[in-house]
Design a protein around this nucleic acid. Structure first.
Length: 422
RNA sequence: GGAGAGAUGGCCGAGCUGGCUGAAGGCGCUCGCCUGCUAAGCGAGUGUGUGGUGAAAGCUGCACCGAGGGUUCGAAUCCCUCUCUCUCCGCCA
């Protein structure tokens, strides 16, 4: 959420940011409701002031035994008027907040202009793509042939877009989770967390998934709870409604969780394999920082995620999302894309974003500077470190041999009981 | 699922027969004094949000005692609904 004052005073800038994103919002209604709201509020506060003063008078008169009937009668009217005005005030407030909650973050000045993903500039490419003398097979064929993935049985158990890992496959998924968590906790300074996989509406609103994107979420029937689409949601909300100490910043958390996404609107896309599932595993990195260091923190967060791919010796590239492809809450985002030889494309495996104070304002996460009055909003950041299912798929495709076997990356072998091959 | 108790400021904890209580007292923290260091002692200060005014320090209006609604001239205090926590019983990994 943007600050209401900022929107009021910078309507044209907000308008510009919206159009750069290819988004819209009813700023006209915002303006009229906000003005009306402020005018009403001023009158209400005057009346309340009068009521407070006179109520004290009444109390004093009652004490000395004077008759206060005239004042009581007058205040009865004042209270009625207040109630009336409050009614129209809350209608305007609701409208203003509804519009405000639907306005995306302002892209950072360094974010390139662009319409969609085809305009995302390449930042760098790392690692050698495997040069193979044979036609590389897609990971779903490899996985099924090796008996470590079974999509048919998964769809029997639940439906389409759910994974079933078996044997060494299940073990490698678990190995990857531990491998990633170990690196982030022991080498990068993140604190490991294991949060709830379901969250309430307020939490979902705090990080920006609600109210605009309810269709993308799985909702529990009979409960106002949602399955998390990413660990970003529960972990960022750890400090919801808190004031952090300046000395405690920056705070780094990592978490493994499964992620649940309805994938509404993606019918027909990536229908095979592990790329687009309703349930997938992810190790997430979350940071809380002071505003002045958040962009440095974004760079190191990206580096932390890249480390995993480097250790696994998987070729990847990093792109900067342009204004048109930026997520709702993000001010700036880097995507890491891993090489998938069978499709001959790079696929997103991590998304690292700085949300600045956009989520902090919604979730009310602040910090206090030593020796200074008042509090400030923190900046929040997060990134995948990494999407586990997609990492699994990338290993199968990049490390496949002519005979259909897969060589396990060296760094992962200690987590696989020393096995060298699948 | 059944029965009961509770939710107050950074923390602990009064108030809860409605009105000088934005909130006693204590702890913590900050500044000053004192003491050859430390400890103890003394004095002052110390919530958040939002609006007005001011160059600023500040002054000032309104709101906030789990959340929402109600009664009343006036509510932390009374009533209703909800959420959460704790205790006991039942059930269960």
């Amino acid at each position: 959420m943007l600050e209401i004052k900022f929107v009021r005073q910078n309507l044209s800038e907000v308008e510009k940011a919206l159009s750069a994103r290819g988004d819209t919002a009813d700023l006209e209604t915002f303006k009229t409701c906000d003005e009306k709201r402020r005018k009403n509020l001023a009158e209400i506060e005057d009346l309340r002031h009068r009521r407070n003063v006179v109520s004290d008078q009444i109390a004093g008169m009652k004490k000395t035994g004077e008759n206060a009937d005239v004042l009581v009668l007058e205040m009865r009217e004042v209270s009625g008027r207040i109630k009336e005005l409050e009614k129209s005030l809350s209608a305007d407030e609701e409208m203003v907040s509804k519009i405000l909650m639907g306005i995306p973050n302002i892209p950072h000045a360094s974010v390139p202009m662009g319409a969609d993903e085809t305009d995302n500039p390449l930042l760098k490419q790392v690692g050698e793509r495997p040069s193979v003398a044979f036609e590389p097979k897609p990971h779903w064929d490899l996985g099924e042939a090796l008996g470590i993935l079974d999509f048919e049985r998964a769809s029997k158990i639940t439906g389409a877009r759910f994974p079933l890992y078996l044997g060494q496959g299940a073990r490698m998924e678990r190995a990857l989770i531990n491998f990633m968590l170990d690196i982030h906790t022991t080498e990068h300074g993140y604190k490991e967390t294991l949060p709830p996989f379901m969250v309430n509406r307020q939490t979902m609103t705090g990080t920006g998934q609600l109210p605009k994107f309810e269709a993308d979420l799985f909702k529990l029937e009979g409960w106002d709870y949602f399955l998390i689409p990413t660990a970003e949601v529960p972990v960022t909300n750890i400090h919801q409604n808190e004031v952090l100490d300046e000395e405690s910043l920056p705070v780094y958390y990592t978490a493994y969780t499964p992620c649940f996404r309805s994938e509404a609107g993606s019918y027909g896309k990536d229908t095979r394999g592990l790329i687009r599932q309703h349930q997938f595993n992810k190790v997430e990195l979350v940071k809380f920082s002071k505003p002045e260091t958040s962009y440095d923190e974004l760079e190191s967060l990206l580096d932390n995620a890249e480390t995993i791919l480097k250790r696994l010796e998987l070729p990847y590239q990093v792109i900067t999302l342009c204004t048109g492809d930026l997520g709702f809450s993000a001010a700036k985002t880097y995507d890491i894309e891993v090489w998938m030889p069978a499709q001959g494309v790079y696929r997103e495996i991590s998304s690292c974003s700085n949300f600045e104070d956009f989520q902090a304002r919604r979730a009310n996460i602040r910090f206090k500077r030593k020796g200074k009055k008042g509090t400030e909003l923190v900046h929040t950041l997060n990134g995948s470190g990494l999407a586990v299912g997609r990492t699994f798929a990338a290993i199968l495709e990049n490390c496949q041999q002519a005979d259909g076997s897969v060589v396990i990356p060296e760094a992962l072998r200690p987590y696989m009981g020393g096995s060298e091959k699948l």
